[in-house]
């Protein structure tokens, strides 16, 4: 099965520190195009405007949190198909299972290693596509 190339990623987080290092790591080491969205308020609008291949979504954000944002993305036909990876410190097995049940494609633990995140994202992208996009 041919896996489509992952080109464009939208990173959604309320913390500038995380957005900057995520963007730099994924662009420098992964060769991806990375757009950033500060906070969840405009997340769906940005996803609709940019149509990224994949979304990285922080779980704990003020206002609308990650799971609520995911729910809204899934309820928006234009972007409902885009795989979403949660980024969170809460990575106990039961917590990860919960996120996957909500519809996340995968989970990346915070704090993450900037040298490894592009490989981690690429692996989750391949797994997503090899499983038929589910």
């Amino acid at each position: 099965m041919t896996v489509p190339a992952l080109k464009h990623i939208l990173s959604i987080d309320d913390e500038e520190d995380i957005l900057q290092v995520t963007k730099m790591s994924l662009e420098t080491l992964g060769g991806f195009q990375v757009s950033i969205c500060r906070g969840s308020a405009k997340a769906v609008d940005q996803a609709m405007a940019l149509k990224p291949d994949l979304i990285l979504l922080d779980v704990m954000m003020p206002g609308m949190d990650g799971p609520s944002t995911l729910k809204l993305l899934r309820a928006t036909p234009e972007v409902a198909h885009i795989p979403v990876i949660f980024m969170t410190a809460k990575v106990q097995p039961a917590e990860v299972e919960h996120y996957l049940q909500l519809g996340a494609t995968g989970v990346i633990a915070k704090p993450f290693d900037p040298m490894m995140i592009s490989k981690h994202v690429d692996r989750l992208w391949k797994e997503f596509n090899e499983s038929g996009g589910n």
Binding site: E15, D17, I18, V21, M60, A89, K110, P111, F112, P114
Partner: peptide, 13 residues
Amino acid sequence: HRLAGSAATYGFP
């Protein structure tokens, strides 16, 4: 929470 989630990424585990 903010500090815990970012410091190690920047090299301060």
